[in-house]
């Protein structure tokens, strides 16, 4: 689904206020958001899917303005994966993934066969079927992130939003998660992800936007333009070395 962000302003009450954000994210795009710590990347992500209410401006999912969408309808369009998830309650992997079906149920309906099948399929996709009955709290952070990804897949969104989906993960899990995201993206789901690791941006994204001090820093560009010495110097204030390997751009800090 195509996303249009029009002159968006909003955020938390006192700080992290974003303003003047306008973006167009085409259907099926793998879109990255980068920027220094505290620049408002996560806030922007939450504004896009309506977790935070914008003070001004609008977001359109396709032709629909998200202000006019019911909360369940919104949840059928957007899934959101936070950087970390609280684990105070001993839900099993299966139960956690199944929660992704909540947007499709009213208070008076109960889980059906269809729901468990979709949950199982999502678990298979991220290869966690053998963890089905384990409490999520007993898993490693890589496995946990896969559980949350499976829940997002089970939600069958049109747009998937992710906040640093692989920030604490080892290279194996990182690779695996991005392979899965790539595959989901190729099936037509728009993916918008916040990144710290700029090499992942050039490896995965078709387009990326930079955020600084609550505003867009320049226009969204293809990763080769974003991941360049001059641009990054302005964005982060540090000199970095940029190398090309097999046509893709990589950063050496």
């Amino acid at each position: 689904m195509k996303l249009t962000v029009k002159n968006l302003r909003g955020g938390y009450k006192d700080n992290f206020v974003m303003s003047g954000i306008s973006l167009e994210i085409p259907k099926g795009c793998f879109f990255g958001i980068i920027g220094p710590n505290g620049s408002g990347k996560s806030t922007l992500l939450k504004l896009i899917c309506g977790i935070l209410q914008p003070q001004e401006g609008d977001v359109y999912a396709g032709e629909e303005c998200i202000k006019d969408m019911e909360i369940k309808r919104k949840a059928q369009v957007f899934s959101y994966l936070p950087a970390e998830s609280p684990l105070n309650f001993p839900f099993t992997v299966f139960e956690t993934v199944l929660m992704g079906r909540n947007p499709y149920h009213s208070r008076f309906s109960s889980w059906g066969k269809d729901d468990s099948e979709k949950a199982l399929a999502a678990m298979e996709k991220v290869e966690i079927t053998d963890l089905k009955d384990r409490p999520v709290g007993s898993l490693s952070s890589g496995e946990r992130q896969k559980v949350m990804l499976a829940r997002a897949i089970c939600q069958e969104p049109k747009v998937m939003l992710l906040d640093e989906p692989a920030s604490h993960l080892d290279i194996y899990h990182q690779r695996h998660i991005f392979d899965i995201l790539r595959e989901i993206n190729l099936s037509g789901v728009t993916v918008v992800a916040v990144f710290h690791d700029l090499n992942l941006v050039s490896a995965c994204c078709e387009k990326a936007a930079a955020v600084k001090n609550g505003k867009l820093h320049g226009k969204p560009e293809n990763p080769d333009t974003i991941v360049s010495g001059d641009f990054l110097k302005k964005l982060y204030g540090v000199d970095v070395r940029v190398e090309k390997v097999k046509g893709k751009t990589y950063i050496l800090p």
Binding site: I51, A75, S79, Y80, P86, N102, R107
Partner: peptide, 22 residues
Amino acid sequence: LYARELDVMTQGDDVAVSLGVE
């Protein structure tokens, strides 16, 4: 009647909203 929403609410506010719970 709210059992499912309670399940989802334990997963943090942002996630709960993104899963359609007011």
